[in-house]
Amino acid sequence: MNDKARLPVGQEAVEKFGWLRAHRFLILRRLSQLFFLSLFLLGPWFGIWWVKGNLSGSLTFGILPLTDPFITVQSMVAGHWPELTALIGAVIVAVAYALIGGRVYCSWVCPINPVTDAAHWAHEKLGMQKGWQPKRGTRLWVLAMVLAVSALTGTIAWEFVNPISMLHRGLIFGMGFAWTFVVAVFLFDVFLSRRGWCGHLCPVGAFYGLLGAKSLLRVSAANRAACDDCMDCFAVCPEMHVITPALRGKDGDTPIILSHDCTNCGRCIDVCAMDVFAFTHRFDATPAPARDDRARSKPTPGASRAA
């Protein structure tokens, strides 16, 4: 194992750039999640109704409708055609995420993300094994099942068990039974499956991943020739399989992470002391310098620095 892989994750970046620079996108993500959550809580908590509704559907300043397209699709397959305002809101949200990256929702907006990140931190601190790891396509099957149940029952099926909606409602009206679902997600990721909920089961993430499959915003390993095999990017990435093709690519392979599983969380950029990664767009034609044969011959990491 590379000696640098034995160091705490991100230590090199902290020593080289400072703590804030080595956590900038993590901090921005938390501020983003807090911002969106606060917008919905201003009304119920303080009587400031800039935004009415929740992440499923809202009206901003009494003018701008925003609707979760996943909710809209469930409603349509259930046989309930949404009103025009809801359809317009769904189109606005769908276009936005199709352009910037569907799973940006997962890492920059979803209030469950801090819960699963905390679960991952606890999982690592407890020294737990990665546990049960369903195939990556499992969440697509869950997505298909949700739509099938909606069609068969005539309901928006996922909303009965959606921990995102329950967390929102719980913060407004008091958690009550909603805590059960949020705590269940946390315990599942800690004890049963490392990064299991967001990475393998959540149909919302699966839906937004498909929605943003051709999105413009991408992370690129543009400076992959400088990689020193510290493995920190693999350790922090919630979808580590997306890194390998870009970072370990052969001469001529694109350095851009094109997988729709990527959440554009930016943590690989944060922790890389060699500045290998950067945000770019999917049409960035800048060629990446090739890694040497020794580096390309190394096996794909995954076990040496547990994510």
Rank of each mutant, 00 (worst) to 15 (best):
T60M: 07
F61N: 10
F61A: 14
G62K: 12
G62M: 07
I63S: 06
L64I: 12
P65V: 13
P65R: 11
L66C: 06
L66M: 14
L66K: 04
L66W: 09
T67A: 15
T67C: 14
P69N: 03
F70Q: 01
I71G: 03
T72M: 13
S75N: 04
M76N: 00
M76F: 07
V77G: 04
V77K: 04
A78Q: 00
G79F: 07
H80Y: 03
P82T: 02
P82Y: 10
E83D: 14
A86M: 15
L87H: 05
I88K: 14
G89Q: 10
G89F: 10
I92V: 15
V93S: 10
V93Q: 10
V93T: 09
Y97D: 11
Y97A: 04
A98L: 09
L99E: 05
I100W: 04
G101D: 05
G101H: 03
G102Y: 08
V104E: 02
C106D: 15
S107Y: 08
V109P: 11
C110V: 08
P111K: 12
I112L: 15
I112M: 15
N113H: 15
P114G: 07
V115G: 03
T116G: 01
T116D: 02
T116E: 10
D117A: 11
D117W: 08
H120K: 10
H120Q: 13
H120L: 13
H123S: 03
H123F: 03
E124C: 07
G127W: 05
M128Y: 08
K130F: 11
P134T: 01
R136I: 02
R136L: 06
T138D: 02
A144N: 03
L147K: 10
L147S: 05
L147A: 08
S150A: 13
L152Q: 08
L152G: 09
T153H: 04
T153M: 02
T153W: 06
T155R: 04
